[in-house]
Amino acid sequence: MNQAAVRLRSVTRSYGTGDNAVTALDQVSLDIPRGTFTAVMGPSGSGKSTLLQCTAGLDRPTGGQVFLGETDLTRLSEKKLTLLRRRRIGFVFQAFNLLPALTAEQNVGLPLRLAGRRPRRSEVLNVLEQVGLRERAGHRPSEMSGGQQQRVALARALVTKPEVLFGDEPTGALDSTTSREVLTLLRTMVDRGQTVIMVTHDPVAASYADRVLFLADGKAQGELYAPTAEQVAQRMTALSAIPSKTSAVASC
């Protein structure tokens, strides 16, 4: 098996104190090999978005350790964590989060500018070409479809050549045809060596992954390799029958 891109060791995330404390993640340990596509699923309140946020360095766990490669994120200062996210991690969300006044080319180059580097036009156009939008480089978001905007967002996430690309419901706002296009792009990038971790509620989206990790009530509840949409749907039906203690506060 490939070296792990991400490792979680007994990761716990609790909110509140005393009798009002709720545990969104409960002693979760897992490895994500490099160059693989992992989907994270679970019923409402399972803690899957909390898992993504802790893994990506957007939130700090209450206990345990999170490693990106050999770097322990839990030991980093806020400043170093911010720099790490800019340089080594990419994000794609359900909302495209493109700046409306900027062209596709300018939106894609923005992470490099935030990192203090003037983007070369060739590298920006190259990543736009990877997502099939080189000819749209001069267009603003209002001049593109939802699927095209999400592909620009994907290019923006890839321009820094991140070690891991995180997706939080990246196809949630797209129709089924456009979703397939974006998922096929993600699958192609993984086949070329990119590591992708994606939270989703959609069994069809999860079927594009190499592995599906299931959560319920903040705990790991097994996994599927080379999943089909039908297998994922059946597992989700079973997990939904598990009462959730964290649904009131845990992100899903």
Rank of each mutant, 00 (worst) to 15 (best):
170 P>K: 04
17 T>A: 13
148 Q>T: 09
62 T>C: 03
208 Y>P: 07
249 V>T: 10
223 E>F: 07
82 T>M: 13
221 Q>M: 14
194 Q>K: 09
226 A>E: 13
94 Q>Y: 10
26 D>F: 06
145 S>G: 01
127 V>R: 05
53 Q>L: 15
132 G>M: 11
75 R>K: 15
54 C>A: 08
133 L>Y: 08
7 R>Q: 14
34 R>W: 02
90 G>A: 09
247 S>M: 13
77 S>V: 15
196 V>H: 09
44 S>W: 04
71 T>A: 03
126 N>E: 15
121 R>H: 08
97 N>E: 13
32 I>N: 04
19 D>I: 12
238 A>K: 09
202 D>S: 14
68 L>Q: 08
76 L>R: 11
167 G>M: 12
145 S>V: 11
145 S>P: 01
248 A>N: 02
229 A>C: 02
122 S>H: 08
103 T>Q: 10
95 A>T: 10
24 A>H: 08
112 L>C: 01
54 C>D: 10
28 V>T: 03
133 L>W: 10
183 L>G: 02
250 A>Q: 04
155 A>V: 06
96 F>L: 10
209 A>C: 05
178 T>M: 11
174 L>K: 01
100 P>I: 03
177 T>A: 15
29 S>C: 02
94 Q>E: 11
49 S>N: 09
248 A>S: 08
195 T>F: 13
190 V>F: 05
107 N>I: 12
115 A>R: 07
47 G>H: 02
213 L>Y: 01
98 L>N: 07
107 N>R: 02
76 L>Y: 13
202 D>F: 07
167 G>E: 11
249 V>C: 00
80 K>C: 08
216 A>F: 04
235 R>G: 00
108 V>I: 14
174 L>G: 01
15 Y>S: 00
215 L>Y: 03
18 G>M: 02
37 F>T: 06
135 E>Q: 15
212 V>M: 07
76 L>A: 08
14 S>N: 04
35 G>D: 05
120 R>D: 15
22 V>S: 01
250 A>L: 06
92 V>G: 02
210 D>W: 06
174 L>I: 07
214 F>K: 04
6 V>A: 00
77 S>Y: 10
124 V>C: 05
224 L>T: 05
140 R>Q: 14
224 L>H: 01
155 A>L: 05
248 A>K: 09
73 L>R: 06
94 Q>L: 07
99 L>R: 01
188 T>D: 14
58 L>E: 08
87 R>L: 11
169 E>I: 11
211 R>Q: 14
249 V>D: 00
202 D>L: 07
231 Q>D: 14
19 D>S: 13
147 G>R: 11
216 A>K: 00
47 G>T: 07
118 R>Y: 02
34 R>P: 00
211 R>F: 05
156 R>S: 09
221 Q>S: 10
67 F>C: 03
8 L>W: 11
162 P>L: 12
16 G>I: 12
123 E>G: 00
42 G>E: 09
48 K>W: 09
231 Q>G: 05
122 S>K: 14
185 L>F: 07
163 E>P: 01
238 A>I: 10
189 M>N: 06
28 V>N: 03
157 A>N: 06
